[in-house]
């Protein structure tokens, strides 16, 4: 009777051991893998930098201009050219720059000269000329970017100045 009891205890011990060991290995492996897979969500941020975007004379008329900027950036393992669309306009001395990325689901907006508004082709979001969201699904204004004129060149900082 007692022997039986002992055997069960021993069996229990072995079973628990197997469970703990396989469990620890599985959790360790899975945890490591998932941490690594998830990490770029936080670490893979695009850094802001000043980028040349053509000559200042191109925007001299004080209207909005669509400027596709291409610059070197690091994206994960890739170091190479990154493209981005920006709308710029000369306000006297100041350069006003808006990111074209719709704050709804990331499509690029178009400037409509007729109405002087920005329109998103995706779900018809509308922003006014200051970038403020006026109708449709967009939850926020278009992001503003820092921009300036230096030696006759238009310079844009890719970091969002104010969201």
């Amino acid at each position: 009777m007692e022997q039986d009891g002992k055997r069960v205890t021993r069996r229990k011990f072995l079973e628990t051991g197997i469970g703990v060991i396989t469990g620890a290995i599985a959790i360790g492996l899975g945890g490591t893998a998932l941490t690594s897979i998830g990490a770029p969500a936080i670490t893979n941020k695009r850094e802001g930098k000043w980028v040349e975007a053509g000559s200042a004379s191109e925007i001299a008329d004080g209207q909005f201009h669509k400027v596709g900027i291409v610059y070197d950036a690091k994206d994960g393992w890739l170091e190479g050219k990154v493209k981005q669309l920006v709308y710029v306009k000369l306000n006297g001395e100041e350069v006003f720059a808006l990111s074209a990325t719709c704050t709804h689901l990331g499509c690029n907006v178009n400037f409509d000269e007729q109405t002087g508004n920005f329109k998103c082709p995706c779900h018809s979001g509308v922003y006014d000329a200051t970038g403020k969201n006026v109708s449709g699904p967009p939850p926020r204004s278009l992001a503003k970017l820092e921009a300036k004129i230096e030696d006759g060149k238009l310079m844009i900082n890719t970091a969002v100045k104010e969201a």
Binding site: N44, R46, D75, G76, W77
Partner: peptide
Amino acid sequence: LMGGDDLGAL
């Protein structure tokens, strides 16, 4: 899902 703050290499 994107592996970063924009759709890209990752």
